[in-house]
Each structure stands twice: as structure tokens, then as C-alpha cells.
């Protein structure tokens, strides 16, 4: 047998990118091969959108905009949360199985595992959002956004989705069982409901309304809605960006630290 030595002339950044690319490829293959991720990515968001449009739509007063035009940004936000539970589960699964142990005995960058899972999550979010917008258009969604509005809306959603995916990765690292990971990620799914994502908060009691209007998930849903519908954005866009950008800045190094601590503990 011939020993093929690792190429030591390359920089560590080169190898960090190499390892991440390889593991992103791995997680992308997982999407197509796990029915659970496909359901969360394609079926569930569309079902929610159709359900809210036809079941609740008639009973909810959204003023000048039709309900489907109001709710689609909210459902997009809910779908990001729903999709991301699979990331917690997948990260936890990897930590419990021997595979992370093996990665750590290899001359590679262990945290590339997390990069792989988050990148796959971003792919699922993108597909999921595209499908929802498509179905939305079929059932009455009539955006008035210009090209630039679309770009800003999708950019903001990307920042939001990235932050949520890293949070989900952290929950996956903290969970002790795969079932536990799914349970820990569950609250993420419900945060948008306590906000302005799905219903206008104007009828809520004051204490709840203040929270519902200002919590970071509502800020994203409100910004995206304003951009889609060409209504004034105000400063909600900047607030949303500050919130979720800040969460990314905190969550990424935290995830790395927890990963290294957990991996050496086992």
C-alpha cells in the first residue's frame, strides 16, 4: 500500500474551505435522501400557507392588504423555523454517532461539520421559500416589489435564516438525545406565532402587543411584508438586520466553543 501524505504546503484557510466544502456536499446529499427533511422543506410550509389562506384568512381583518398578501411573509418566517429543526436533529445525531469522533481523530477541522449542516439548512430555506412564493402567486399573492425590494427582502431573509440555523446547530450540540434535540428546537417554531407574522397584533392586550410588535421575528416578517407590498419600511429593516446580524456574530463562535467542549467530553 502507498501512503499518500496530506499536502502540507497549503494554508490552513485552504484546508478549512476544503473540509467545509466536502461536508457541505455530504449534508446536501442528506436532504434528498431523508424524507423528513423533504417534508419539512416542501410539504409543511405549503400546507401552512394554504391552510392560513383559506381557513383563517376570511376571519382575520388585515385592513387594506388581503390576508394572503399579509400572511405570506409570516409563513416564510415560520417555514425557516420549521426547516431548521432538522438541523438540530442532524447535528445532535452526528455528535452522538461515532462520526464526529472519527473526524476528530483525522487531520481535519472538526467544526467544518457544523458549517456543512448550516449550509445545507440554507439550501433548504432557499428551496422552501422559492416554493412558497410560487404557490403564493397561485393563490392570490400579488407582490408590488421592485427588483431592489426583492433583493433586500431576500437578503434580510438570508441573514435571518443563517442566524436561526446557527441557533439550531447550538441546540443540536446541547441536546443529549436526538429526540431531545427535536424538542429543544420546537420553541423556535412557535416564536413567530407570538408576533405580527401571522395576524396583526392590534387586537392583542397591550402588554402582549408591545412584545409581539417588537420581537425580532416580527421585525423580519414586517420588513419582508413591507418590501413585498411596497409599503413604507421605516426603521424595522435596520432593526431586524441589527438583531439577526448580532445573533450571528454571537452564535457562530459560541457554536464552535460548545462543539469543541462537547467533542472532548465524550
Amino acid at each position: 500500500m502507498t501512503t499518500v501524505p496530506a499536502d502540507v504546503r497549503r494554508s490552513s484557510l485552504y484546508w478549512a474551505v476544503n473540509d467545509s466544502r466536502v461536508l457541505i456536499g455530504r449534508c446536501l446529499r442528506h436532504i434528498a435522501r431523508s424524507p423528513e427533511q423533504l417534508v419539512l422543506m416542501l410539504f409543511l410550509p405549503v400546507m401552512l400557507l394554504v391552510m392560513f389562506r383559506y381557513l383563517f384568512g376570511g376571519a382575520i381583518d388585515t385592513g387594506d392588504v388581503t390576508y394572503v398578501n399579509y400572511v405570506i411573509s409570516g409563513i416564510v418566517v415560520v417555514a425557516v423555523m420549521v426547516n431548521t429543526t432538522a438541523t438540530s436533529v442532524a447535528v445532535c445525531h452526528d455528535m452522538l454517532e461515532g462520526i464526529v469522533e472519527r473526524f476528530r481523530s483525522m487531520p481535519m477541522r472538526g467544526t467544518a461539520v457544523l458549517v456543512g449542516h448550516v449550509a445545507a439548512a440554507m439550501t433548504r430555506h432557499a428551496v422552501s421559500i422559492a416554493v412558497m412564493v410560487g404557490v403564493g402567486l397561485l393563490i392570490g399573492f400579488r407582490p408590488r416589489a421592485g427588483f431592489l425590494d426583492w433583493l433586500v427582502a431576500l437578503g434580510l431573509l438570508a441573514v435571518f435564516a443563517l442566524a436561526v440555523s446557527w441557533l439550531a446547530a447550538i441546540l443540536g450540540l446541547l441536546a443529549k438525545t436526538v429526540e431531545g434535540a427535536s424538542g429543544l428546537a420546537m420553541p423556535l417554531v412557535f416564536i413567530p406565532y407570538v408576533g405580527s407574522a401571522l395576524v396583526p397584533p392590534s387586537t392583542m392586550p397591550d402588554w402582549l402587543r408591545v412584545f409581539a410588535e417588537n420581537q425580532p421575528v416580527s421585525l423580519v416578517a414586517d420588513s419582508v411584508r413591507a418590501l413585498f407590498m411596497g409599503t413604507p419600511l421605516g426603521n424595522t429593516g435596520w432593526l431586524a438586520l441589527a438583531w439577526w446580524g448580532g445573533i450571528i456574530v454571537l452564535a457562530v463562535p459560541l457554536a464552535g466553543r460548545i462543539f469543541r467542549r462537547k467533542a472532548t467530553q465524550r
Binding site: V4, A6, D7, W15, N18, D19, V22, L23, G25, R26, R102, F103, M106, P107, M108
Partner: peptide
């Protein structure tokens, strides 16, 4: 192949 790539082949 995955492991080979991570072993930097």
C-alpha cells in the same frame, strides 16, 4: 470518498 477528501487526498 468523503473520508479521503477529509484526509486531504
Amino acid at each position: 470518498v468523503l473520508m479521503g477528501r477529509l484526509f486531504r487526498l
